[in-house]
Computed example of a mutant assay.
Amino acid sequence: MVRARPPSEIEHMRSRIASRLRVLEELLNTQMEEYFSSPGSEGLAYSVRPHLRRYVEVAGQLLERMGGPDGDPVDDVVFMDVPVTLVDETDGTEEVYTVVLPEEGDPAKGHISCLSPLGLALLLKRVNDRVVIDAPGGRFTYRIAAVGSLAASE
């Protein structure tokens, strides 16, 4: 079940998302290649760029609607810095992750880089969406069970 966020949480999210969008714009405009500087990874920068551009564009649009007269229409959307609970469809286990900027990634703490296969796949997904990840370790299928403070408290 999706709950409405209080105005103070919405304003905090708006501020945080706006800040992250500015950082992502900088990353896209000037720094992308340094994150993919290893031999053979040139194509990754070009395949990741459209996903992050879409996130910046759509998140900006959603940001404008947050807390508007129609309420908060994005309670169940995965944004950067917002915890998300995933259920592994293979074994039913749950994990809580937060998509963060590349330099903040720390999988041991559940902080997943926005440039990773999982981070890219999660951005802008909604509760109950299915996420399939093709990673070096194999194919993983998850269902998004919760987003936001509900994910963090479960």
Rank of each mutant, 00 (worst) to 15 (best):
M1Y: 03
V2C: 07
A4C: 09
A4M: 14
E9H: 07
E11Q: 11
R14G: 01
R16T: 12
S19L: 10
E25M: 03
E26D: 15
E26H: 12
F36M: 06
F36G: 03
S38G: 12
S41L: 15
E42Y: 09
E42A: 15
G43N: 13
R53V: 15
R54N: 13
R54L: 09
V56M: 01
G60I: 00
Q61P: 05
Q61R: 07
R65G: 02
D70Q: 07
G71P: 03
D72W: 08
D72M: 10
P73D: 00
V74H: 09
V74R: 13
D75A: 05
D75F: 00
V78C: 06
M80K: 04
V82W: 04
T85D: 10
L86F: 08
L86I: 04
T90W: 13
T90E: 15
G92K: 05
Y97Q: 09
T98E: 04
E103W: 15
E103A: 12
E104V: 14
P107H: 08
H111R: 14
I112N: 01
S116G: 03
G119T: 04
R126V: 03
R126W: 04
I133R: 09
I133Y: 07
P136C: 10
G137W: 15
G138E: 02
G138W: 04
A145S: 15
V147Q: 03
G148K: 00
